[in-house]
């Protein structure tokens, strides 16, 4: 699963990362390889350890054990070298409320030790690119949520980072802002930036990431492209909507003739779904079986399993419905282990 032989070409390489917060084990031996120039999606429910992993890889937190390199630099021993080549956009906009968008970007550029004149031009360029030129000279506290995320992302891009960490970049954004941000991230990837993206939105991982690493309870539980993961769950899904709810059982019986496993019946919505293999011929067989049983249907689809199906199959729970325990990682003032 983790190709350690490849770690020379890995932008990010983590081995056996462990992190405790008191009694809570946030990371339990996490392994991760992100090849140069790819997008890896770290997918998992709240409390799975996604943010802890990102905080360790971006030098904000030290692991209790295990090791990690980013761009070949050790995240503990060569933290400064790591910081020079990464950009980080977290769940909360890490920008100053009272400063304007332009001032925020120039401040960040100056702290990368880049010349003032260059930084001013670069800030202007990024603000234009992120549709913030009109708001460039307004304090960030007057920005909308989507604008804050964009200026935050712009701040992490000032110094052309080779490796970008996006920790739930679209959490809490409206659909329109989410699409905008996805477009921007897509561009960065085309330009060759390596991206590690954490998300609890399966759609986001599906859309942006080449490779998906599913983690739960601080451990990797699955790894692969979205297609590979979907194949792990098994073939396709045949889904029908029965017109007469009283005939759901007959519909299920008809479908079980063509299905690999027993169909799943949702009595409330009139949906019957079944895992199938054999492509579109199955669809024809299913419709015939239903027709000869005299069951009328409103809708029929043959679809690939979604990452929702994958997640359900892997973890036994649906991703979005996971309750959000207050992660212990939020506790401030916690001493770091100096070992």
């Amino acid at each position: 699963m983790t190709a350690s032989a490849n770690s020379a070409n890995s932008a990010i390489s983590a081995k056996g990362l462990v992190k405790h917060y008191g009694d809570v084990k946030a990371l339990d031996g996490l392994d991760l390889e992100v090849p140069e120039g790819t997008v890896v999606g770290l997918l998992g429910p709240n409390g799975a350890g996604k943010t802890t992993a990102v905080r360790i890889l971006t030098t904000l937190l030290r692991p209790d054990s295990g090791s990690a390199t980013v761009a070949g630099f050790d995240v503990v021993r060569q933290a400064d070298a790591v910081r020079r080549v990464i950009g980080l956009t977290g769940q909360y906009a890490a920008v100053d409320e009272y400063l304007t968008g332009h001032e925020n970007l120039t401040m960040v550029g100056r702290l990368y030790h880049l010349p003032a004149g260059w930084v001013a031009d670069r800030a202007q360029e990024l603000l234009e690119r992120f549709n913030l030129a009109d708001a460039a000279d307004r304090p960030v506290r007057t920005y909308s949520g989507g604008m804050r995320r964009r200026v935050d992302l712009a701040a992490s891009l000032v110094a052309h980072p080779r490796i970008l960490f996006l920790d739930e970049p679209t959490t809490g954004l409206d659909p329109r802002s989410r699409l905008d941000l996805w477009a921007v991230i897509g561009d960065l990837v085309r330009e060759g930036t390596t991206v590690l993206l954490t998300t609890q939105y399966l759609e986001e991982a599906d859309r942006l990431a080449n490779d998906i690493v599913v983690i739960d309870h601080g451990r990797v539980i699955a790894h692969g492209t979205s297609d590979v993961l979907k194949d792990q769950v098994g073939g396709d899904r045949l889904e029908i909507v029965v017109r007469d709810r009283s005939r759901l059982n007959e519909a299920a019986a008809a479908l079980s003739a063509v299905s690999d496993a027993s169909p799943f019946v949702d009595a409330d919505t009139g949906h019957v779904s079944a895992p199938v293999s054999g492509g579109s011929t199955v669809l024809v067989e299913a419709v015939r079986a239903l027709d000869s049983a005299g069951v009328e249907i409103d809708d029929v689809v043959l679809r690939r399993p979604t990452l929702d199906d994958v997640f359900l199959a892997l973890t036994g729970h649906v991703a979005e419905e996971e309750p959000a325990p207050a992660p212990a990682s939020r506790g401030r003032g916690r001493g770091r282990k100096e070992s």
């Binding site: 030098t59 904000l60 990464i86 890490a94 100053d96 409320e97 960040v108 702290l111 990368y112 992490s156």
Partner: peptide, 12 residues
């Protein structure tokens, strides 16, 4: 505030 995370992730 989140700005401290920004500062900590910079080579400053």
């Amino acid at each position: 505030k989140g700005i401290i995370d920004r500062f900590r992730s910079l080579p400053m």
